[in-house]
Design a protein around this nucleic acid. Structure first.
Length: 827
RNA sequence: GCUCAGGUGGCGGAAUUGGUAUACGCGCACGACUCAAAAUCGUGUGGGGUCUCCCAUGAGGGUUCAAGUCCCUCCCUGAGCACCA
């Protein structure tokens, strides 16, 4: 009966809030600062799971608190609707991705509404809507125009199950992030975005934002900046030198051989001079067969082949050194070639031992010849550089051999094209006439004026005119991915054939779609002005809200989404579309909720907790409160099925206490109760501000207990308590506010209760009395009592004084309001 | 292997940054109400003992009047990265 009542209350207020638009955000409110509170928008997977609740419900507690602190809060929600996960799920069920996605969105909106969050539903966006992806395409074109998008044929990560290429970030342990299939390398033409141009700024601007240090570290590691030098080694009978990248130019005198990656162009170019070509070729074939997973398996022994017939010269020593090809050298990093210094590098050491290469030690600290020494030190065996420190020698030797300082990044450009149906089409066409025109410009025409930077960079690829956006995703019947590495759109003739926006001739459309991370890289901009059809968002509106004040979402996005969004923001900043360099001023991650068995929730394990059932049984307020109370928000943990009863009891006690009419007597609220209340006001606020929801709830429980035991609690305090509860249990709080408390309006519009400083300190405090550091008594004294007073009281305390008989006090430690410690020894 | 979090009762977890370890909640036990049960309320609940005490915050050392908190050595769990020269 009671539970039905709670559900009734929730429904009632939710429909009233919706009807009256209580939570719709105005772009400016006089006298209030704007606060943009954002959660990472979900993709339409089907149903809200408990993880969504854990992300969104406590985040809403924070948003409601910020609102109560006098901010004008924007808290939007939407759907990351394009992309592989939704498409794969739809295909599995034999449903069209569009049907599947929009059906899921309807379900999830209903579920989200039951959470009772302060979302401004009028701003809801769906990235698969043409009104939205029109601007995603515009974003792509903006990057294209600025020369930040380019087409390239190269080996890419190919998921044989999803039939598409993947970005580096989407390959986890050599497997597809989405379906878990082993990723293979495939030569294919694709579009990339020059995120590497921003590598340095993506590192340095991390200093501007309030993010978890862990996330910053992960981004720095992913970008992987390292400073070193490129050094050239000349080769016998070959005009070009081999260039290597090294961070340890100081060890050049210890370099006893070179290694080329199997894909290094020189291997083929030197074919004529290589005497054992058959052996080398066999090795190349063998390497190509290996998957990335096999190639990067650290446990395996190093392999490689000596290139017979050619030699390199160590530019420092002048000595001839052999050259190997080996797959422990990666083609995509640095120059694809290394100088091997076995004495001071673990991998080279391992390889040298296997292939009996000389190991020359050039750092003094290298003591044990059976091991490598990877550290720095003073140089030996290094000609005129002997005696120098590693640090000095790095520059000196680089200079001596004519090397060049260089900074390398591990970050690769962002591969954005997908050979899949369910995404925003890349708004480009290919025009053969324009290609010829660009590649063979007639002397008098100024093709640079006719074509944008992106078009000159990618001859033949022409941007669709802005007025013709969006390039609508056709509603084709055949949306299944194809084996041959082409998007299913390639078969839609009416889509493919078009005219060139520049020359008006025949042209064909790009049929790849964009990585869904492109859609999610800018959605937070759109929320500030979601219905604008002139531009992606009005500058004034963006200025009033952005950058995002608080962004809450899963840590799994630490490198993908968060890096891409930062990149796009910087590119748009450079293009003067934005006035800020970093999109998310403050970022926090919620933890992960595991199943009751402590394992990751999954249908196959049968340990999935369904929030719908919980809400039906307990109501949203109880679920919200329990998610807050479970444990530290940023830590997460296993779902404890029993504990939810505790918060349910608490809410019932709150209701019972508030509903019960206070005695009409002239009684005063006891001082200790007032003190507890005001301390609770402060603590709950401070705790929510730090996302320490569990301790905030605990404080509310303590406060209620104190109220229940009091002879009288004045109305102001009773109402104040309900206000403290309101962010956690907004429906019950509103019901009590309008009902039993007889207050007007919406409790969510009320300011946070005031703190009265005079009550923050208890008037009586407990002082622990210790003898030699051991607790022997606890005495109650007025707050602020001085040492003499406390000492006198302690000496008269029966349990305490007996320890002082026949003892000499040699030291007294006194911390006001905390502790008294007497150090004694026998007299 | 490297980096970052963590390790506190039967369980989830607190601990104002060096000052009463185990707040709050779950569970459990006993009691009240009830014919009875559920619900609710009350009391108790780290371990031990010779019951004016001793021992306990992953293990072991150290600093300090005082250590969950600081330092050193090690063990375990989780997350991320991983042949990046």
């Amino acid at each position: 009966m009671k539970k039905n009542n709670q559900l009734r209350i929730e429904k009632k207020w939710q429909s009233e809030w919706k009807k009256k638009g209580v939570y719709s955000a105005k772009d400016t409110v006089a006298g209030k600062k704007n606060f943009y509170h954002l959660v990472m928008f979900p993709y339409p997977s089907g149903n809200l799971h408990i993880g969504h609740w854990y992300n969104f419900a406590p985040a809403d507690v924070y948003a409601r608190y910020i609102k109560a602190r006098g901010y004008n809060v924007l808290s939007p929600i939407g759907f990351d609707a394009f992309g592989l996960p939704a498409e794969n799920a739809a295909i599995k069920r034999g449903i069209h991705p569009r049907v599947w996605t929009y059906q899921n969105i309807r379900t999830m909106v209903t579920q989200l509404e039951r959470m009772g969050n302060i979302y401004d539903w009028s701003r809801m966006l769906i990235t698969a809507d043409p009104e939205y992806y029109r601007w995603t395409q515009w974003m792509f074109l903006e990057l294209f125009r600025r020369g930040l998008a380019y087409r390239k044929k190269a080996a890419a990560n190919w998921c044989p199950s999803c039939h598409t290429v993947l970005a580096n970030e989407q390959v986890v342990d050599g497997r597809c992030e989405r379906c878990g299939s082993e990723v293979v390398q495939k030569e294919i033409e694709q579009w990339l975005l020059k995120i590497t141009d921003y590598a340095d700024r993506l590192i340095s601007d991390l200093d501007m934002v309030d993010w978890p240090e862990k996330t910053k570290i992960m981004q720095r590691n992913w970008i992987g900046k390292s400073e070193g030098a490129v050094i050239q080694f000349s080769i016998s009978n070959f005009q070009f030198p081999i260039k290597v990248f090294t961070t340890r130019a100081d060890t050049l005198f210890g370099c006893t051989y070179l290694v080329l990656a199997p894909e290094h162009a020189f291997v083929q170019e030197l074919k004529e001079s290589i005497r054992n070509w058959n052996e080398v070729e066999a090795y190349l074939v063998q390497t190509r067969k290996k998957s990335d997973l096999q190639r990067t398996d650290l446990a395996k022994e190093k392999t490689g082949v000596l290139l017979q017939g050619i030699e390199a010269t160590n530019p420092a020593t002048g000595k001839k050194i052999p050259i190997f090809v080996a797959d422990y050298v990666l083609t995509g990093y640095g120059t694809g070639a290394i100088m091997a210094v076995p004495a001071h590098d673990e991998r080279d050491f391992e390889f040298a031992k296997k292939f009996h290469m000389p190991i020359v030690s050039v750092i003094t600290s290298h003591k044990n010849p059976n091991e490598f020494y990877g550290g720095e030190g003073t140089l030996i065996n290094s000609g005129k550089f002997t005696g120098m420190s590693s640090e000095q020698a790095r520059t000196a030797i680089t200079h001596f051999v004519g090397g060049k300082q260089q900074t390398q990044y591990r970050l690769r450009d962002w591969l954005v094209s997908r050979q899949r149906y369910w995404g925003a089409p890349i708004p480009l066409v290919f025009c053969a006439a324009c290609k010829t025109h660009i590649e063979n410009p007639k002397p008098k025409t100024q093709s640079s004026k006719l074509y944008s930077k992106g078009e000159l960079l990618n001859p033949g690829w022409i941007a669709v005119n802005e007025k013709d956006l969006p390039v609508t995703l056709p509603n084709v019947k055949n949306y299944l991915p194809t084996e041959e590495g082409k998007s299913p759109l390639a078969h839609a003739q009416s889509f493919v054939n078009t005219t060139c926006p520049r020359c008006g001739g025949k042209a064909v459309r790009e049929t790849d779609t964009m990585d869904t991370f492109m859609c999610s890289s800018w959605y937070f901009l759109r929320y500030t002005d979601p219905h604008n059809n002139k531009t992606f968002a009005d500058k004034k509106k963006m200025k009033s809200w952005l950058p995002v004040s608080m962004y809450i979402g899963g840590a799994e996005h630490s490198v993908m989404h968060l890096l891409y969004a930062r990149f796009l923001t910087k590119a748009l900043y450079d293009a003067k579309h934005l006035s800020f360099k970093e999109p998310f001023a403050r970022l926090r991650h919620q933890g992960i909720i595991l199943g009751p068995d402590g394992q990751k929730m999954s249908k196959s394990r049968g340990n999935v907790v369904d929030p719908d059932n919980l809400v039906n049984e307990f109501g949203a307020d109880v679920v919200r409160l329990y998610l807050c109370f479970m444990g530290p928000y940023e830590q997460g943990g296993a779902w404890q099925p029993g504990g939810i009863m505790g918060v349910e009891r608490f809410l019932k006690r709150v209701e019972a206490f508030i509903i019960q009419k206070p005695a009409r007597s002239k009684l005063k609220t006891p001082l200790v109760v007032k003190q507890t209340y005001y301390q609770t006001v402060k603590k709950v606020g401070d705790d929510i501000n730090q996302l320490s929801f569990n301790t905030a709830v605990s404080a509310l429980m303590i406060c209620l207990r104190s109220f229940e035991e009091a002879s009288y609690v004045e109305p102001e305090l009773r109402a104040g308590f309900v206000q403290l509860l309101a962010p956690f249990a907004p429906h019950l709080a509103q019901e009590l506010w309008s009902g039993a408390l007889g207050c007007k309006g919406y409790i969510s519009n009320e300011p946070w209760p005031a703190v009265r400083k005079q009550y923050l300190q208890n008037s009586q405090v407990s002082i622990v009395c210790q003898i030699n550091g051991k607790k022997r008594a606890v005495i109650e004294v007025p707050a602020g009592s001085d040492k003499e007073t406390v000492l006198t009281l302690a000496r008269t305390n029966e349990g305490f004084q007996k320890y002082l008989l026949d003892q000499e006090v040699i030291r007294i430690i006194f911390v006001p309001d905390k502790i008294l410690n007497l150090i004694i020894k026998p007299r």
